[in-house]
Every structure is written in structure tokens, then in C-alpha cells.
Design a protein around this nucleic acid. Structure first.
Lengths: 246, 246
DNA sequence: CCAAAAGTGTTGGCCCTACACCCATGG
DNA sequence: CCATGGGTGTAGGGCCAACACTTTTGG
């Protein structure tokens, strides 16, 4: 991905946007990061997916990284393009269009949006003020959202399971560097929405090779302290590389 | 998908296009359907993926169906959106842009394209003349292609395996209604690019439940005649439905 | 009767599932 | 000492991979 000059970045391309679905786990729930927008008429606070029109000279992946960075302050997060949405009905709601026209200072007709997906540690998000405050919201209790953001989120939730099947390493994006077996298991349980057998989970986890036990343990629990594990990325990549040569 | 009036169909949206990668198996090779385009300058025949700008009031899936129909005469083929391509470099080649401007009568700047994938029986394609003649070309020996069509095809080939893993029924889109075990096995071998054990393949095929033997056999072979099998879509959907309720 | 491809069974390994008890810690 | 969650082993079943011979047919 190349660095763009500030100049070329100033021209928006008002036909294509990028929206980012950032998923995270907060306690017991799968959450999505929403940013605030002020309603043009009522001034009421509403929420939307972090997203923006793309710039004239910007690649889609670049735009997604930029949005992520502007919204969360994060860089180097693995973003995956997962689907484009282009129904002419997307801009059927006049309030949504009006809001976007105010925000972009451009006449908006139809917009095709390219949706990206990323997994995050809920704690890591720093609130950037460029697009207003960001907020983690449980998937199960979303507010009314503009455009087809509801549908985009629903598709994203379906997509993470498929993605996780092919790239198991991404679960660790949900977790801190040191995590307990319980945390990892609970993460899987929340994503796949089913409970898992504790013993089988331990066996599987230990057989993987890239989830390695540390000597550290959780402190101050009212019961036996849990061991911390860490994700060994080098080992993971070694195993991954073998797969690709088939 | 709704029917559009002819009127609204006449206005093109010169910022987003849809390209279709139709894959088929011709004898021993994986092939892609390309359409002809005349080079504006030299008048030389060149090839490209079937594709077009979208119309103002057309959904992306609709556009993909339209293109498929205009190119091949086929309807009701399962098309899957698999990725969008939006590098500003896509329109770096001036010849490509010039050709598109002539074809569309519109000023072309940047274009984001949404790529679709479908599997076809090579025999079934009727040549439609709206976009020029269509031609099956082996993936292994593609000519020079405009824009980033080469990259799109490469991604499509990666994508079918993933798709096939999740939706086994799509192999039958490659095959005639009656097919031999050999044909089905060879289809898998070509797609996954590895050979398979004959006995294990038969066992697996027979255990599936939705590949059912018929009483008909291949005739006129200089050896024992092979049984024809058929795909039982009802049975497949029954099994599929069970999966989704988990 | 020969060449060429169709069709068929068995075995062993691996992985997944189901299932119950003891261990360490804090209060 | 008790309540709470952490951590462990084993047995059975299903699925996959490896492997060789007999059958049918046309020429």
C-alpha cells in the first residue's frame, strides 16, 4: 500500500464508499463498532458504521485502512473485503442522503459500498474525533442504522465464521496478548454461538502448536489461578506455509 | 430481482462495472469464457471478460444476470459475487479506457468493478452477438487481457475451490444432467488440481445421497460401459436444510 | 483373447465426541 | 473447609487414505 500525497487525497469520488464492520467481544457479547453522526434536521445523535467515500486516487484496501485508522487510531489491523452492496434502494431514505451530502459537500446519487471486516480487542480502541465518537454496540441490540448498514452487519457476522475456518489466527485479534484457555474457548463459543466441551477444547488447543502456555497465571481469583497462553505467530506461519505448498 | 422498465435501463452509471468470470471444463482443461472486443486503433480482435457498466437503477446481482444473459443466452445460472476491484491503476492503460469510452459513449475516469463467478457446461453456451462472439479459453493459456482481468480470473480460480467446499452442488453446473462417475471425478481433479483414488471416490459419491445411479449406461465404448448418475437436487436441499438449523 | 476402463472391500490411523473427577486457590 | 472454576484421560465411532483384482465390452 503506497503513501498518497495530501493533495490527491482531497478529491472525493462520490460514487463508491467503503464501510468497515469492526467486530469485538465485550464480556459475553459480540459487538460492532459504530460511530456517531448528528442528524441534520433534529440534531439527534444517531449511529452508523465507520465508513467514507473513497478518494479519487485511493485503492479500496487503502480506503478501508484509512477509515479504520481515522475511527480507531489503529494501524496494521487485518481488514478483509467481504462483499459489495449496490442496491439502488440503498439511498432510498432521503435523510441518509441529505446527511451524506452535508458531510461530503457533494451531490449524491447512487452509491455502491464495499464492505470490509476486521476483528478487534474492544479495549484497544482509542476514540478519534474526526468522525465523532465511536462506540461498541452488541449485535443483538443494534439501534436504527442508516442505509443498509443493518444488512451489512448481518452479512459480516455470517462471514467471520467462514473466515475463521480458513484462518484460525484471526481469533487472536479478539484477545489480549496473554489469554486464558477459558477466554479463548469463550471467544469461539460466542462467535459460533454454541458451547464447547472443556476437555476436548484443551486437547485441541494444545495440539495446535501455535497456542503456547506461558509460566504466568491469572492472579487474585477466588479459585485456582488459570494459566496464560500466548499466540505464536511464527509457528503459525510455518504451519500455514506447509498448507500452501500442497 | 425485479423487472426494470426499459427506460431506466438506458442510463448508464459510469463509475461501477460488473465483470463475470464464467468457468467451464472443456475436456481436460479449466476454461474461462471471454468475449471479443475490436481494438479501436488497429481493429485487431482482442478478448476480455464479459462485463459492462451498471445501469442507474440496477442492482449489482441484476447487472451480473443481465451480462450473463446477453453474453451466453443463459438465465437462472447461479452467480456469486466474490470480490470488488478498485485500484486506481485499473484504468492506467489508455487503450483500455479509450475502448470503453467508445463503447459507452461516456467519459471514463476511474472504475470500480464488482466481479461475479459462475460455473457452466461448456456445451450450453449460445453465442449472442450483442457483445461480440464469446469463446472458451483455457486458464493456462490466456491471451493479453484489458484492465486487471488477468488478476480477476486468478482470484476467481482460487475462489471456486472455497465455494465448492461450502456448496458441493455447484459441481453439477459443470456437468450434463447425466454423467458418469469418471466425469464427476475428473471435474474434481481439474478444479483441485490433484488426482483422486477411484475406489474412495466411488464410496464417497455413493454415500452422499444426492448423487443417484440411473439405469442408463454409456454406449459404444471399446470397453465396459459406465453407468450414468444424476444429481438429485431435492435430496441435496433436504440435507442442506438440516445443516442450516444447527 | 486382448486392451481398456468400470467397478468393488478391507484395513489402519486420525480426529472428533462424549463423559467425571481431582486440583488449586481465596474467602 | 467450602465454593468456585482450572485442568486432565479414555473409549468408541466416523471419516479418510492406502491399496489390487475382477468384470465388461469392442475390436
Amino acid at each position: 500500500m503506497e503513501i498518497q500525497s495530501e493533495n490527491s487525497k482531497e478529491i472525493l469520488y462520490p460514487h463508491v464508499s467503503v464501510d468497515c464492520v469492526l467486530l469485538g467481544i465485550d464480556g459475553e457479547q459480540l459487538c460492532v463498532l459504530l460511530t456517531e453522526r448528528k442528524d441534520a434536521g433534529t440534531g439527534k445523535t444517531e449511529y452508523k458504521l465507520p465508513g467514507s467515500l473513497i478518494y479519487e486516487t485511493e485503492d479500496l484496501d487503502e480506503a478501508a485502512c484509512r477509515i479504520l485508522n481515522e475511527t480507531t487510531g489503529l494501524k496494521r489491523v487485518l481488514l478483509k473485503q467481504f462483499r459489495s452492496f449496490g442496491s439502488p434502494q440503498r439511498t432510498a431514505n432521503k435523510e441518509d442522503v441529505l446527511w451524506l451530502e452535508n458531510a461530503s459537500k457533494l451531490k449524491i446519487g447512487r452509491i455502491v459500498t464495499v464492505a470490509y471486516l476486521a476483528l478487534c480487542k474492544v479495549r484497544k480502541i482509542k476514540i478519534s474525533e474526526k468522525y465523532g465518537a465511536a462506540q461498541w454496540t452488541p449485535i443483538a441490540s443494534l439501534p436504527r442504522l442508516p442505509f443498509d448498514h443493518q444488512e451489512i452487519i448481518a452479512e459480516a457476522v455470517k462471514e467471520i465464521r467462514i473466515w475463521l475456518d480458513r484462518e484460525p489466527a484471526i481469533v487472536f485479534d479478539f484477545l489480549p496478548p496473554l489469554f486464558t484457555a477459558f477466554q479463548l474457548r469463550r471467544t469461539y463459543e460466542i462467535i459460533y454461538n454454541k458451547s464447547m466441551d472443556v476437555r476436548n477444547f484443551h486437547k485441541k488447543m494444545n495440539s495446535l502448536g501455535y497456542v503456547v502456555p506461558t509460566e504466568e497465571t491469572e492472579q487474585g481469583m477466588p479459585h485456582r489461578s488459570a494459566r496464560y497462553y500466548r499466540f505464536d505467530k511464527k509457528e503459525y506461519n510455518k504451519i500455514r506455509a506447509k498448507l500452501n505448498t500442497i
